[in-house]
């Protein structure tokens, strides 16, 4: 994230992202590591779509496909703040 562009979604702090994910997966935040594959916490397309919509509303330039490609908090957090998507 060594870009000079302004952060598109400053409200999406790491704490909020973790909390959003735990809420939607009905899990304890403490149980989800930032490098876990969220599939193993029961992430599915329906919940991912809900997250995508929430975060888009907060200004994050992410798509469902981008998030789906690598469901992991660290990666998502970078994407939400303008990081380059991987393919």
């Amino acid at each position: 994230m060594s870009n000079t562009k302004p952060d598109p979604a400053p409200s999406l702090t790491l704490e909020r992202v973790r909390a959003d994910i735990a809420r939607i997966l009905q899990a304890d935040e403490a149980d989800i590591a930032d490098t876990d594959n969220l599939i193993d916490h029961g992430l599915d397309s329906i919940r991912l779509m809900a997250l995508t919509q929430e975060w888009q509303a907060a200004g994050a330039p992410v798509t469902f496909d981008q998030l789906a490609a690598w469901p992991e908090i660290n990666y998502w957090f970078s994407l939400l703040h303008g990081g380059r998507p991987i393919h």
Binding site: I39, D44, S45, D65, A68, P71
Partner: peptide, 12 residues
């Protein structure tokens, strides 16, 4: 049905 599609390899 579980799409099983999310994730690193199978997403696309």
């Amino acid at each position: 049905p579980a799409m099983e599609r999310l994730g690193r390899a199978a997403a696309r």
